[in-house]
Design a protein around this nucleic acid. Structure first.
Lengths: 173, 173
DNA sequence: TTAAACTTTCAATAATTATTGAAAATAAAT
DNA sequence: ATTTATTTTCAATAATTATTGAAAGTTTAA
């Protein structure tokens, strides 16, 4: 397969993966493009390669910078900005995991905390109330479990990265 | 807080969580409603409580059944169908994790396999080609890592479930 | 068989979300 | 200060995705 064709397919696949996980297709595609580009790209480079508008590129690179997986690169003597992706895939995964934990796990945990105490009432049977309370408690419990699991993964991933790094530093063990 | 209000808030929060993760809001809401309902609900019950159409309920309960987290319940002497959610939250998590692994990890792994061999060409420099190949290899590598992590989580979760079950069976250790 | 009670489908429509493009803002150079 | 290069914003528009509702399909019972 030709490089260009391979890149095209990767960008498409990454975009599809993104949309299955609630990330906009274009944002994932911009990320994919930067991942497989050797140097940093300008806004125009991205516009050309993905055939999207300037405003669209701007919004998406900024969102990617919010996630911490793309950074701006300034070149001396160049007025325009260039963008490059974090290339270490484990760091990328870690950053995404951290961010999603913050953005999506925290809000639901807050809601669960707020609704966990239900007062007895005339319209609801005690069984209904009890079942609800139990369900919320078990979800809350599970959210903690997920939170710890995410923390463990982030940790495991950092270790994995570290051990790879060590190997690189000392090629002949 | 009143039970009804608490349920309402839970359904809303669950819907929001779902859409952040690429699940349609209504599907997540139907799931939430079934989670906090004591018995099984009919199509009409769901229509009434969520204020959505019959067709919508039908499509979403069917999707939930595809995920394996909702099942149909038939009552003797009743012609219509009732639906109830899997109430064990660990089983729910396991089923979702398994399904997503199958639906989303597998396709991207396939694409990575297909594009990993790039032939040398006049239009691409060897550096570009090499960088691309390296990136794909590291993502492929990571996908395996993620796959193992998912398997481990599923396992951990089953163990957690098992140990809870054991405790229930023998309340006085 | 026919009717009644339900479920399923799907074309039309509504709602949501993403994208554009041009104007406004900003920053650097002259 | 003015021009030029660039980024940013955002109202308008396009594209996508979800929802409806009525017709067609299915199943059970009389």
């Amino acid at each position: 397969m030709q490089l260009d064709e391979a890149k095209r397919r990767f960008i498409e696949g990454w975009g599809t993966l993104g949309s299955a996980w609630g990330v906009s297709r274009t944002m994932a595609q911009v990320h994919a493009l930067l991942l497989v580009s050797l140097g940093a790209l300008s806004t125009e480079d991205i516009m050309d390669q993905l055939q999207i508008s300037r405003g669209n590129v701007n919004m998406n690179v900024r969102a990617l910078m919010d996630w911490g997986i793309v950074r701006k690169e300034l070149r001396p003597g160049e007025r325009r900005e260039f963008f490059s992706a974090e290339k270490d895939i484990h760091r990328v995964a870690t950053l995404i995991l951290k961010e999603r934990r913050r953005r999506e796990l925290e809000p639901i945990v807050r809601v669960l905390g707020e609704i966990r105490h239900v007062e007895p009432s005339a319209t609801a049977t005690p069984e209904e109330t009890e079942a609800f309370t139990q369900m919320i408690a078990s979800i809350q419990n599970f959210a903690e479990f997920a939170d710890r699991a995410a923390a463990t993964l982030i940790k495991a991933d950092e270790n994995w990265f570290l051990s790879t790094f060590m190997k690189l530093m000392r090629p002949n063990p």
